[in-house]
Structures are given as C-alpha cells and as structure tokens.
C-alpha cells in the first residue's frame, strides 16, 4: 500500500474545497427543504388536531342548541294546546249564555203575544155573543133582562176561559 505525503496534502485541500462547495449547492438547500417539510408536516398535524377539536366543540354546541330548540318547541306546543283549551271553554260558555238569553227573550215575547191575543179574543167573543143573543131573542126581552143575560154570558165565558 502506497503512502504519499502529496496525496495526503491533496486529500485535505480537495476535501475542504469539495466540502465548501457541496455544502452550499447540495446540503444547505436539501436540509432546508427537509426541515421545512418536516416543520410543515408538524404544523399541519397540529392544525388538523385543532380543527378536529373545533369541529367536535361545534358539534356539541349544535347538539345542545338542537336539544334546547326541541324542548322549546315542545313547550310552545303545550302552551298553545292549553290556550286553545281555555279559549274553547270560554267561547262555549259565552255561547251557552247567549243561547240562554235568546231563549228567555223568546219565551217572554211569546208570553206577551199570547196574553195580548187572549185579551183580543175575549173582546171578540163578547161582541159575538151579544150579536148572537140579539138574533135569538130579538124583541122578546127587555132592557133589564137583556143586560142580565149579557152579564151571565160574559161570566160563563170568563169561567170557560
């Protein structure tokens, strides 16, 4: 195996120059690239974790909101049903009262009409009876008898009624 001092010196010089150049054209850029990529991957993973946590938080929030909305709607429906029941009861009561009033008014007016009709009828019957009696006993009765008779008829009619 050969040993040359010149080769030793050349090896040192050559390697130092080689190292200086290749460090600039190769190692620095490629290491920077690899480290940048590594950093980017680390950041991306962190960001993804963050986004996942955020999504989970939002999901829970929406879930809660949905639950609250569900409960609220249930409450609203219950309230509406209750209100409708109350309104129905009130309307029913009102209607019943109105019906009673109408009925009462009608009965009163019927009673009044009947009374009036009866009074008119009584008048009419009296006149008719006088007329009839006059026809039956024309001239055979005097004034006094006549009056007595008429009164008797009127009383009888009153009793009949």
């Amino acid at each position: 195996m050969e040993f040359s001092m010149y080769e030793l010196i050349w090896a040192i010089i050559n390697f130092l120059i080689f190292f200086g150049v290749i460090r600039l054209v190769f190692w620095k850029p490629i290491i920077k690239m690899l480290e940048d990529r590594r950093q980017a991957v680390i950041e991306n993973i962190a960001r993804a974790e963050e986004a996942k946590a955020e999504a989970e938080r939002l999901r829970q929030e929406y879930e809660q909101q949905l639950q609250a909305a569900r409960e609220e709607s249930k409450e609203i429906i219950n309230k509406a049903v209750k209100m409708a029941d109350e309104t129905r009861g009130r309307l029913l009561n009102d209607a019943r009262g109105e019906a009673d009033r109408i009925m009462e008014r009608a009965q009163r007016s019927i009673r009044e009409e009947k009374d009036k009709a009866l009074a008119e009828l009584r008048e009419e019957v009296a006149s008719l009876a006088v007329l009839a009696a006059e026809r039956v006993i024309e001239k055979e009765i005097n004034e006094a008898d006549h009056k007595h008779f008429v009164r008797q008829v009127i009383d009888e009619v009153g009793e009949v009624q």
Binding site: E2, F3, E7, L8, W10, A11
Partner: peptide, 9 residues
C-alpha cells in the same frame, strides 16, 4: 485505496 488520501480525510 491510498493511505495518503484516507489519512488526509
């Protein structure tokens, strides 16, 4: 393969 070179390194 030369000792001089490897010695330099």
């Amino acid at each position: 393969s030369h000792w001089g070179v490897t010695a330099g390194l």
